[in-house]
Design a protein around this nucleic acid. Structure first.
Lengths: 199, 199
DNA sequence: CTTACTGTACCGTCTGGACGGTAATGTCAA
DNA sequence: TTGACATTACCGTCCAGACGGTACAGTAAG
């Protein structure tokens, strides 16, 4: 009755994320994760020798996938601007019924330092966004709005209606193209710019 | 319910918020809060019979103060739009060295339901914002951007430079005025009493 | 013989909170 | 005025249980 391939790692990570989503961070114990993953506690600790390593795994897994998707969407030979790709990808993440990264709170609860890779990623991303921005302020507003949307979802608040979310996302997407200097991008019309820099 | 000598209660609440800010949510135990507040554990438990009540107290205290400040800034006879007031107040909160509501993570860790009053408040606020918005999409973007800014601060990320934050806040503030329909705000119609239109 | 686990037993620490005290401050009848 | 009792606002201790982590014997597959 033993699985013998290292697929347990992924299974555990998925289960851990799922558990964090369903229960709160308090119930995020090693025993609970093991139970939820259908793995013995020994097996869990075999794959992740400490709880800290589990958290790290969660963060790195999530960040790796997101970065990969981002690079795939907006490479040097792609038409989409990085900002637009970021908005679109974040939108997709927000559209799913459950937030993808609810484990963030468990990680935060354990030790805020676990989020360091996320901060670093965001910093790197923002540097690239600054570099491509024709209108830095508009870019920043769009970036922050996406961040706000993501966090509202993360905190489990249902403040916006789906239509509003769609509406705002569309506006953000079009603003993203406006705010990015991408020579080949054909965005000529500026209808009622929602996000405009002033000052 | 009011008028006692709540010297301990307020002291405990302040200490709890401070502790959550300094240490992470893990170290947010009743003993730690009591120690930090200079109160015995029994005394703490006297003021807040359970940890849940403490959390509730934290949430209600914070929300009460914010709502009060918001109502003071943007009443029916005030010049500032609600959105602008919200942006400005949130900005002030973000400018302090430490996030005011770091305890949110402790509350979230304990039980996500503790944030329910916050969700409700946001919902109510957004309803009022929708009512006064001349450009709902722009309003929403500004609202979300503020939310994003607050959360970045909350998570302890130092992604933006102070100048960027100032810049973006200024843009949001001006966008807030543009997106709000406030009939007699700036226009030369200087008769004193005007019927307030909200709804 | 190694890898990748399972399962059980255990340990030291920490936690929320119950509980029994107690000093100070009313309240009130005689 | 006094003594008896009640309430308030706290203190300090104790405890059952949960936690992360260790240790180790066993096992099925390659």
């Amino acid at each position: 009755m033993a699985g013998h391939r290292p697929s347990s790692r992924k299974k555990i990570l998925a289960a851990a994320a799922d558990l964090a989503r369903q229960s709160g961070p308090v119930r995020f114990s090693l025993d609970a994760v093991a139970r939820h993953a259908g793995v013995s506690k020994g097996g869990l600790l075999y794959n992740f020798p400490t709880k800290a390593k589990l958290m790290q795994g969660l963060v790195e897994d999530y960040l790796g996938e997101f970065e990969e998707a981002l690079d795939a969407a907006s490479g040097p030979d792609k038409e989409e601007s990085l900002l637009a790709a970021y908005v679109r990808l974040s939108a997709k993440e927000c559209e799913s019924a459950q937030p993808a990264a609810a484990w963030i709170f468990a990680a935060m609860a354990e030790d805020p330092d676990f989020l360091e890779p996320i901060h670093a990623f965001r910093k790197r991303l923002l540097d690239r966004l600054r570099a491509e921005a024709s209108d830095p302020t508009a870019m920043m507003v769009a970036f922050l709005a996406v961040e706000g949307l993501r966090n509202i979802k993360l905190f489990g608040s249902k403040t916006l209606t789906p239509e509003e979310r769609e509406d705002v996302l569309a506006a953000l997407l079009s603003a993203a193209e406006d705010a990015s200097r991408r020579p080949e991008a054909v965005v000529a019309y500026s209808s009622g710019s929602v996000v405009k820099s002033s000052g």
